[in-house]
């Protein structure tokens, strides 16, 4: 190690790795529905895209996680964004391209991508336990 820059480079490369291992309640959480219905409709590539985009763009206060069935199977893949102190935003029928856009616009610039959003007032019944956990 001949310079601080070298150290910094390693740190940045690793931060996405080890940074995931904290459950800070001030973080923005991006949750992907990954039940059978979600997986069947293509939630896994969406999840993986979100994870790598968030890491690439070095969004340190964002965690991407998965949950079970969100209860709106016809709209899967579903991505929900929880920001501290704000109402949850639900994106539906997401694909990897849309996921990239959500990261770019919503997570980086703070602009919700209205066209992919589930309109307000939709029922959220059957929401998995995880959400309770999430809201804590």
């Amino acid at each position: 190690m001949k310079s601080l820059e070298e150290l910094k480079a390693i740190r940045e490369r690793m931060q996405g790795q080890v940074g995931v291992r904290s459950a800070d309640s001030s973080d923005t959480r991006v949750v992907v529905g990954m039940a059978t219905c979600g997986i069947a409709s293509g939630a896994r590539p969406v999840l993986n895209t979100l994870v790598s985009e968030v890491n690439e763009k070095k969004l340190e206060n964002v965690t991407v996680t998965q949950t079970g069935c969100i209860g709106l199977c016809q709209f899967e893949p579903i991505v929900e964004v929880f920001e501290p102190g704000q109402e949850k935003v639900t994106y539906i029928k997401v694909n990897p391209e849309k996921a990239k856009e959500i990261v770019e616009k919503h997570l980086i610039k703070g602009q919700k991508v209205e066209e992919y959003m589930l309109h307000k007032g939709a029922e959220h019944k059957g929401y998995a336990d995880f959400v309770k956990f999430d809201e804590k």
Partner: peptide, 8 residues
């Protein structure tokens, strides 16, 4: 890990 359901 696959389905996101916590094993309570």
């Amino acid at each position: 890990l696959l389905k996101g359901r916590i094993v309570k």
